[in-house]
Design a protein around this nucleic acid. Sequence first.
DNA 1: CAAGAACTGTATATAACATAAACAAAACTG
DNA 2: CAGTTTTGTTTATGTTATATACAGTTCTTG
Lengths: 238, 238
Amino acid sequence: MAAKGDGGGDPGRGMDLLWGAADRPSRGPKPRLSIDQITRTAVEIADAEGLGAVSMQRIAATFGFTTMSLYRYVPGKAELVALMVDTAIGERPDLDAVPGGWRDRLAQWARQCLRVFTRRPWLLEATSGHRVMGPNELGWMDAALAVLAEAGFTPVEQHDAFLLVAGHVRSVAQYTAGADTLRVDEWSAAVGERLSRHPDRFPAVVAAIQGGGYAKAADEPLEFGLRCLLAGLDELLA
Amino acid sequence: MAAKGDGGGDPGRGMDLLWGAADRPSRGPKPRLSIDQITRTAVEIADAEGLGAVSMQRIAATFGFTTMSLYRYVPGKAELVALMVDTAIGERPDLDAVPGGWRDRLAQWARQCLRVFTRRPWLLEATSGHRVMGPNELGWMDAALAVLAEAGFTPVEQHDAFLLVAGHVRSVAQYTAGADTLRVDEWSAAVGERLSRHPDRFPAVVAAIQGGGYAKAADEPLEFGLRCLLAGLDELLA
DNA sequence: CAAGAACTGTATATAACATAAACAAAACTG
DNA sequence: CAGTTTTGTTTATGTTATATACAGTTCTTG
């Protein structure tokens, strides 16, 4: 068992860290590092160079420590990434001050959530797959569920609606994150070349591209989706 | 430049493979393998044991070949994964026979797409991040865009709506895929334990759980989202 | 206050990974 | 038939995560 992503393992360990149930032992030498420090450094590396640049060696080297020293603070890399995620997501948003009804509050939630993902594109990679939710992430969820509950949705509906909105935000974030790396123009050109060789195989795509369906402002897709979602949710409420 | 995920590189190489522009040379010995064979085997491994089990060594060993032999057929692992994705996604769905209007056709698209992701959860991992779309994937997109175009949406709206629906499918797939691995009950229990220690910090989550917001059938979230989305889109059309 | 237990950080080692480079055999082409 | 091209192998490199054993440090306990 080495290298990456095995998946099997005690989920409790990571959660203890995430939820801060660590009681400092009083025997040995004073630790010269801390989970917080390590996590913050890892986040900085990810911010600057992406999640791929985050390795145990790299983090340790930043402190001038050996790689293995980190394992005194973190059971493994998966747990560290979980910590990074919860740290990077940050405090839950405060939606109480948002003027308007529940629709405006939920839209605001989505916008702020998108901003988090946009600022740190590596969060998309880091949060794909099933994970243990940290307190911050659960806080974000709580904020959204509170809005939905107040609006009058049933618990099941609250959950479904949350999944819907959060999924949309992720989706937009993924779309726009890629648009930074690979210009949409390049993509259109590259695909367009192949497309022109198979003219009748993807007629709708060709038509949409020629109709200008791929040039738009950054947060246009987010707002479009929100309009649809909120309208649909509203209708369901009545 | 070694190990995983560097990201930089000529996107053209992979696309040549994806879009099947390979002309067989007639000089050397007959190749005893083929891209198709390699891709299919890789998909089988991923189907059986997940994407993490797919390594060049593993694939080569299946044929009784050396690891490096694969590099005569594929420029690198990233390109192979791209091939796997397009193979695994499969042929575009035929929506012409779907009775009803554009809403029913789009819903059918979403259901079939979800089935693909459900059957092969590793597709979620493999398709996160920005990629070059293969012909099959573009076919799926074309199918959806065609429905939206026929319904009367503008090219920009077509694209936004596609992103919205596809994102929802992904979101649901991710949710249910995790539910297989980690039972929802376990999750509720694990989180619930922590939750009970912070009773007033996540009131909405607690209320939703106690209201039964987390016990539901597998494709319930998909249908819920579709109802909202389609209603919203319909409203926008008018 | 001394002995020992517990903890920290290190050194060393392992296994898995992707992939580069050089080479031998094979097959077609002139 | 000689030469060129291509295949598959061999060998080697660099990067991962992480297990294990150890040396030094600090508190607790007799």
